[in-house]
Design a protein around this nucleic acid. Structure first.
Lengths: 351, 351
DNA sequence: GTGAAAGCGCTAACAT
DNA sequence: ATGTTAGCGCTTTCAC
């Protein structure tokens, strides 16, 4: 047989002695005579019938699959998004297709293009950077797309963004509020949107608190624990009393480098991260961080996409929507005030 | 139009003035007259044609999609697997469907059952526990399945298992070798296969090193950082000189609880985890752990599955294969000898 | 070399 | 209430 031996409505029809249409009707809960209904159900059960989803998809033009494309599933931020998205799509009866772009722009474009192959009904894309080609591809997309990230104006696509400017400001304000005055900043690559925004937020917040912007207190690097450690070592001569890092991995690396040199965290230098990933709570000392809403953004993106899909009239019927997730400061031990509350960190207890 | 305005071979054929068969041939790289070839390609390009993967799937009975079902994508162990699997499947030209079962057995069975809907060509299942129903469903599976976990004998399905008995033994041996004699054990739930195995490995290894099995040094709990902290506090009265935890989250929790009480890690008590997840290296002190090969198992599972799919004759043609991943001990600061090498942990430096 | 037509499994008119 | 049939988009015989 052409099939893998799987039962189809044809086999059921034969076994039940009815037409395939009746089988389809019974199985889809449309009326039928008691007798017919029974025989069809029995035949289906005996054969262990499972409807072929591909055939159904071809018929009604939808797969009930959604695609999520992100740079790297190894990054806790994206894991949080996947998790949130998965929860929403699962509840709505959609399967989730995962695509790792490895932070390669071409790959992102390929995913966008492949939306035309009708493998999935919609796409959530988390691009590392938005190029003109991205804009073009997004505009010409063959199906509904939601972007997690900041899009230039005029791109006719729903998007969900983080407010990392505000997030950075929250951290700086917190550090300032707990007595820190020489607040260093370890940023990620400055040629990405988040990198630029975080830098902007940092500078703005410094100004707002009357602190000078000191070049020697700022380091640009890539993400990753080891980079954070290196950055911290580089910053030490500038004598910061706080190090704010553009993500938790950097912060963790920085904290470890400091501890390894006998610098006390937070007594001598406070350390704060960003993203509030699992690493933040797992670190020692537990890291103060800003939740930029990875989960919330994932959830919202999924909701926007489903909303489009469920919309009565097809495609880009209504105007693109943009949502911004509010940042939330999560204070932990790594930024306890240098003096004040008694013995904030057990690290200082030296028996 | 019935379609979403997407071009199909019909539109191309019309535009190029040829039959749909010719379009198909040209697009699939089969011979055609220069002239024909050119016109078809041009028409396809102008229309922005992308082949409909669903139609193709229906035709040739395969989707080039694989499903990976695991309990919870939030767990670093599964993230590592997803990552490894994704890399293999992507390279082989397969898409990856992610399914989170939320550790619900019914959901696992549902996934197994839904293999019959032909949505994906094969399944990698990472079950939390193997029940009789699992065995039945696995035996009756409508397509190739690879299980990550330990399967009873006789189940006709490929599987990839971890050797947590050996892994536990490695840790105990290491702790014993670095002078620890009162080695406590924080285990996960004892009614899971890994739980039982890890407990078994612990006991066996103790015996092998001539250490007594002391009930008061063993705690059963569920996984999670907070559980680890609670367990450590509970163990303190029993005066352990090492705490071995059944996973990294527990270990991290334990280490933090100890530090918070002024107990030095590793000087007073060594702490070791299991899985060697990102938490292990990110933690402070960096955790000694055993890599049970999450990545390796994921990769291997994907390879086994692809192997089946690529096999000339269909289905369960050849006998089930079982692979076991070798555990690998990763020593970090959290288990440095209590005395000996000079100043293993910066924590001891008290300026 | 190219076109006509069958068929993958299913649903939904349309007929009876 | 049930059967016949067309058609979703594609690949692949089979004729010409």
């Amino acid at each position: 047989m052409p099939n893998g031996g799987q039962p189809t409505i044809v086999s059921i029809a034969a076994r039940a002695g009815v037409s395939i249409a009746s089988v389809s009707r019974v199985l889809n809960g449309q009326g039928a005579r008691r007798d017919t209904e029974e025989r069809v159900r029995r035949a289906a059960a005996e054969l262990g019938y499972v409807p072929n989803a591909v055939a159904r998809s071809l018929k009604d033009g939808r797969t009930r699959q959604l695609t999520f494309a992100m740079p790297d599933i190894g990054n806790p931020v994206y894991v949080a998004m996947v998790r949130a998205i998965q929860a929403v799509t699962k509840a709505a009866g959609y399967r989730l297709l995962l695509h790792s772009t490895d932070a390669v722009a071409e790959d992102e474009l390929a995913v966008l293009h492949s939306l035309g192959d009708r493998t999935s009904d919609g796409l959530i894309l988390c691009p590392i950077r938005i190029t003109d080609e991205h804009v073009a591809a997004l505009t010409a997309a063959a199906g509904p797309v939601v972007v997690i990230g900041s899009l230039p104006d005029g791109v006719p696509v729903d998007s969900v963004r983080a407010d990392s400017v505000a997030g950075s400001a929250l951290v700086v304000a917190h550090l300032h509020g707990t007595g820190r005055r020489r607040i260093a900043f370890v940023n990620g690559p400055s040629d990405t949107v988040p990198g630029r925004n975080r830098g902007h937020g940092y500078r703005t917040a410094l100004a707002a608190h009357g602190l000078p912007y000191d070049e020697s207190l700022v380091v640009h690097t890539d993400f990753g624990i080891e980079s954070g450690a290196a950055a911290a070592r580089r910053l030490l001569p500038a004598r910061p009393d706080a190090i704010f890092c553009a993500n938790d991995q950097l912060a963790l690396g920085a904290a470890h480098a400091l501890l390894a040199r006998g610098v006390r965290v937070p007594e001598d230098i406070a350390v704060a991260g960003m993203d509030d990933s699992t690493l933040a709570q797992a670190g020692w000392p537990p890291l103060t961080s800003v939740d930029l809403g990875s989960s919330a953004r994932g959830r919202r993106a999924a909701e926007l996409l489903l909303d489009r899909l469920e919309a009565p009239d097809a495609g880009a019927a209504f105007a693109p929507r943009t949502t911004t997730a509010f940042p939330r400061l999560v204070v932990r031990a790594s930024t306890a005030p240098a003096t004040g509350s008694p013995d904030p960190s057990p690290l200082t207890r030296t028996p």
